[in-house]
Simulated assay, not measured.
Amino acid sequence: MTASIRNPAARRAELRRLMLAHETASVDELCAILSASPATIRRDLAALEAEGLLSRTHGGAAVQSIRAVEQNFAQRELEDVEEKRLIAEATVALIAPGSTIFMNDGSTLMAVARAIVSAGIEVFVATPAVNVAAKLSENPRVMACLLGGFVRPTSLATSGHFTEAMVAQIDADLAILASDAVSVSGGMAFRHPGDAGLAQRMMERSRETILVATARKLNKRQRIIAAPLSRIGKLVTGPGAPVKDLVAAGINIVTAGDQRDSDAA
């Protein structure tokens, strides 16, 4: 169950996200998840149906013709929800107002985008992620710059020469990055070489890099190493994450819920 969302637009966006992840749901199920009344959920479903985003069924609703990438992302957003929220809040606490920031893509970065919007801080964010840029644009104090390039259908993020050329024109304070794996021996690593290359360009154009990672990403390896962890300014992870080896290697850890750096504890 999530906390009751009073704003209709925000509640409908959450409802849409849940429907993408589950494809079908009953009114009773949605009431329980969103802590809303049946009348409210029915109004929201009617509004989303009018926009062509879902179809109402007897006692609920269904999403048809879902793109695999949208469903995959929605399902990943439902993993480790509380941990990602805590990581996002801890990350936003490290951002100075007026900063220029790079963010790559992923469900943890989407949580960071939500936290930035909620915090109302004034920042400039350049990102290849279409969904992250759209979320950031909800707050007029955030200037969201969508990096141009070829959109990969598997991630809904841009990549390639044009994307990296735009990165080269930006002088950033921070690169807030998520990767597919993090380990002492394998560094910050990715499955896709384009993701690794873009992360490298963002780090080169930033004064500091903050890596965000849930516990399931730690002490794992992937095929493409973007950078050793010695290049990372801070690693922000969730409470109870397995950081013993990372701390022993001298990595600066910020544990969500505890703003003390590991080397200051």
Rank of each mutant, 00 (worst) to 15 (best):
Q71M: 15
P38W: 12
L53Q: 15
A39G: 09
A46D: 15
S37R: 03
S65T: 06
A46Q: 14
E49F: 10
G60C: 04
R67S: 04
A50I: 00
S37W: 05
P38R: 09
R42L: 04
A50E: 07
H58T: 06
Q64E: 15
A47R: 10
I41N: 09
V63A: 13
T57W: 06
R67T: 00
S65E: 14
Q71W: 06
A50L: 02
R67C: 00
I66G: 00
D44S: 07
T40S: 14
A68E: 14
L45M: 03
S37G: 01
L54E: 03
R42C: 01
P38H: 09
A47P: 03
L45R: 03
A61H: 03
Q75D: 00
A61N: 01
L54C: 05
A68D: 12
I66M: 12
A39N: 11
Q64T: 13
A74G: 02
L45K: 03
Q64R: 13
D44Q: 06
A46T: 15
T40Y: 08
S55H: 07
A61V: 01
S37I: 05
L45I: 05
L45D: 06
N72R: 14
G60N: 03
P38E: 08
V63S: 10
I66V: 12
A50T: 02
V63D: 04
F73Y: 13
S37D: 03
H58G: 02
N72T: 15
S55P: 00
S65C: 02
F73W: 11
F73S: 13
A46C: 07
G60P: 05
A47S: 13
G60S: 01
F73D: 14
S55Q: 12
L53A: 14
Q64L: 14
H58C: 01
L54F: 05
T40F: 06
P38Q: 08
A68C: 05
I41H: 10
E51M: 07
T40W: 08
G59D: 03
R42Y: 08
V63E: 08
Q71A: 15
R56I: 02
G60T: 08
L48Q: 13
I41M: 09
L48I: 13
Q64D: 15
E49H: 09
Q75C: 09
A50K: 07
